[in-house]
Nucleic acid binder design. Structure first.
Length: 502
RNA sequence: GCCCCUAUCGUCUAGCGGUUAGGACACUACUCUUUCAAGGUAAAAACACGGGUUCAACUCCCGUUGGGGGCGCCA
C-alpha cells in the first residue's frame, strides 16, 4: 500500500481490450482516470484485457498504446497483459472452488442455447440454473472429460449493494443475477473474474468506468465477497452518446482516437473536449490546457447524465487550441502530422470536414501539400492561415502546389477576356515592384482600379482565382505577399494561358 | 420481458431552497471587409409532467412519462 501525505495513495487503471481501435468512450474513461491520478499524485496503470483470444490482436494492442501516447496519457505501470497472468486466475479459481461457491460447469453453448431461447420466448429473464449440476452423479461423470468452465453459484436470496461515488448506494436482488462464468473452458478467465483478481492484486483503489458496467459491478462485488477482499471505490460515469442518444458507435461517425489524430485534431483538443463530456470545472471555463485539466479535476464535479458527442464543438475547440499555439509550435505539429506513418482507414461518412487535401484519406502522404522545404515560407503561411484553421488539414495546398483547376463559378465570372486584360495589367504592374510588400501590393492594385475606374474587387477576384483557384481565402494582399513575386507571376501567366482566346 | 441508471436552451453545461436561470457550440441579424472565415455586437433558445415537503422549489421526496444501459464460456 502506498501513502501520500498521510492519505492512501490513489491507484487507478484503464483496461481496454485489444479487439479494436481505442474508442473515444474508452479514451474519455482513460482521461478521467489519468486526471484523477495526476491530480491526486497517484498511480495510473495500463492493463490490456486480452483474454478474448479470438478477437484480440497484437496490432490493436499497439494501436491502443499509440492512441494513449498520442493523447499524452502516460502510465506508471504496464502495459500488463492479462494473458501473461493466466496461471494467476487459475490459482484463484481453484481456491474459490474449494469454498464450494463455484464449481465446474460442463454445459456447452449448445446445451444452454435452447434453454436461453425458451426463456426469451416466454419473455422471462434468462438464468443459468445449473443444469449440469442437477444431473445424477453418474451422468455428470460422463462429461468429466469435457472442457469445463467454472461457474459461480449466485445465492437466490438477499441483495448485493455497493456505494457508488456518483450514484450513491446501488442495490440489486441476488435473485436477478444469474450463475455467471468465472473461468472459460479454454482456460482464460471471464471479464468479471479477471477484473476482480487483477484490481485486487494490483492494489487498485478507485475503479472509474462507464455506467454500462454497473451490472458487472454487482457480480464483481459478489466475487470480492467470496474471496473476502475489500472492494475498491466505484465511480460509474455516464456514457458518450451519438446524435440519436444511443451508445456512440461507428454509424454515428468517427469513434476511434486515431481517426481524430489523422483528421488534424490536436491531442490537447481531444483530451479537453472529452474531459468536458460528463465533467465540468464549474463556472464558464471551457478551453483548458492539460495542466489546467489536471489541477481542476475533481470527482465531485462529474455529471450523471449521458452526453452527445458534438463534432462541431470539437472543431471549434480545435481552432481555439490551434490559435493558442505559437507559429513555431504549430509548424512542428504540422510537420509531425504530415509525416504520420500510418493512417487508419476510415469507413462510413465523416462528420468532420475535409478540405481539398484529401479524397481518399487512407495512407496518404500530405507532406508536399501541407508544407514546403522552406521553413521561413512555412511560417509565413502559418501566420496567415492560423486564425482561420480548425484542423491541421486546413493548411491550404495552393501555398505549396500550383492550383490545377479554377472554381467553375468564379472562373465563369472573372476569368473572362476582360479578366485576362486585367490580369495582364496586374502582372505588369506587380512585376515592377521592387519591394513586394502588403502595402505596395495594395497600393498598386488600388491604383489600377482607380485608373480603370472600377472597383478593386474586379481586380482582386480574378487575381485570387489565378493564384489559388478558389473564390475564398485570406486577405488577398497578404496572400500575394506570402506567395512571393515569382509564384505570383508564374500563376498569372498560367491563368492567362488557360483563358481561351476569344 | 426482467433489472439498473437518468431528466436545465437543438447540443455541452453552470446552478447545490429565495437568480432577470449564467456561459459555450450551432443558428439568426448587424458590424468589420476584396471574398470566405476569424473578431466584435445583438437576438432567439431550457428547468419533461403530476403530486407532496416548505413561508419559498430548477434545486429535497414520491410517482408518471421520456431517454439510456445491462441481461454471453465478449469485454
Amino acid at each position: 500500500m502506498s501513502w501520500y501525505w498521510g492519505k492512501k495513495m490513489i491507484k487507478v487503471r484503464i483496461a481496454p481490450s485489444p479487439t479494436g481501435y481505442l474508442h473515444v468512450g474508452t479514451a474519455r474513461t482513460a482521461i478521467f482516470n489519468w486526471l484523477l491520478a495526476r491530480n491526486q499524485k497517484g498511480k495510473f496503470v495500463l492493463r490490456i484485457e486480452d483474454t478474448d483470444i479470438k478477437r484480440s490482436s497484437q496490432e490493436m494492442t499497439q494501436s491502443i498504446i499509440d492512441s494513449l501516447k498520442w493523447m499524452g496519457l502516460n502510465w506508471d505501470e504496464g502495459p500488463i497483459l492479462q494473458c501473461d497472468r493466466l496461471e494467476n486466475y487459475k490459482k484463484n479459481a481453484e481456491a474459490l472452488i474449494k469454498t464450494k461457491l463455484c464449481d465446474f460447469c460442463y454445459c456447452t453453448e449448445e446445451d444452454l442455447k435452447p434453454r436461453k431461447q425458451a426463456a426469451l420466448a416466454e419473455k422471462k429473464s434468462w438464468k443459468c440454473n445449473r443444469p449440469c449440476l442437477s444431473l445424477p452423479s453418474d451422468e455428470r461423470q460422463k462429461w468429466i472429460m469435457r472442457p469445463a468452465a467454472v461457474r459461480f453459484f449466485t445465492e437466490s436470496d438477499g441483495k448485493v449493494s455497493f456505494m457508488d461515488k456518483l450514484h450513491g448506494e446501488l442495490t440489486k436482488d441476488l435473485h436477478d443475477i444469474e450463475d455467471f462464468v468465472l473461468m472459460k473452458s479454454d482456460g482464460t478467465p471471464s471479464y468479471n473474474f479477471a477484473c476482480v483478481v487483477d484490481d485486487h492484486e494490483m492494489g487498485i483503489t478507485h475503479i472509474l468506468r462507464g455506467e454500462d458496467h454497473i451490472s458487472n459491478t454487482f457480480k464483481q462485488i459478489i466475487i470480492y465477497k467470496a474471496f473476502g477482499w475489500e472492494p475498491p471505490v466505484f465511480i460509474h460515469v455516464p456514457m458518450i452518446l451519438g446524435a440519436d442518444r444511443s451508445k456512440l458507435s461507428k454509424r454515428h461517425g468517427a469513434v476511434s482516437v486515431l481517426e481524430y489524430r489523422d483528421k488534424g485534431i490536436l491531442p490537447e483538443t481531444l483530451v479537453n473536449f472529452l474531459a468536458l463530456l460528463g465533467w465540468s470545472p464549474g463556472g464558464d471555463r471551457e478551453v483548458l490546457s492539460m495542466e489546467e485539466l489536471i489541477s481542476e479535476f475533481s470527482l465531485d464535479k462529474l455529471g450523471v447524465t449521458g452526453s452527445i458527442f458534438d463534432y462541431q464543438k470539437l472543431e471549434w475547440m480545435n481552432g481555439e487550441h490551434i490559435n493558442r499555439l505559437s507559429d513555431d509550435e504549430l509548424l512542428e505539429r504540422i510537420k509531425n502530422f504530415s509525416k504520420l506513418p500510418t493512417r487508419i482507414l476510415y469507413s462510413g461518412e465523416s462528420e468532420l470536414r475535409f478540405n481539398n487535401h484529401i479524397n481518399s484519406p487512407a495512407s496518404q502522404d500530405f507532406s508536399s501539400t501541407l508544407l514546403s522545404e522552406d521553413d521561413e515560407y512555412n511560417k509565413k503561411v502559418i501566420a496567415l492561415l492560423k486564425p482561420r484553421m480548425k484542423t491541421l488539414l486546413d493548411m491550404e495546398s495552393y501555398f505549396f502546389v500550383e492550383p490545377t483547376e479554377y472554381d467553375e463559378k468564379g472562373a465563369g465570372k472573372y476569368l473572362t477576356q476582360e479578366g485576362k486584360q486585367r490580369l495582364e495589367l496586374l502582372k505588369t504592374r506587380l512585376s515592377e515592384l521592387t519591394e513586394f510588400s502588403v502595402e505596395n501590393i495594395e497600393a498598386v492594385i488600388r491604383a489600377i482600379a482607380g485608373e480603370l475606374g472600377i472597383g478593386a474587387g474586379l481586380l482582386i477576384h480574378p487575381l485570387r482565382l489565378a493564384l489559388t483557384g478558389k473564390t475564398v481565402g485570406p486577405s488577398l494582399f497578404h496572400l500575394v505577399e506570402v506567395l512571393g513575386k515569382e509564384r505570383v507571376m508564374q500563376r498569372i501567366e498560367k491563368t492567362m494561358e488557360w483563358i481561351k482566346p476569344s
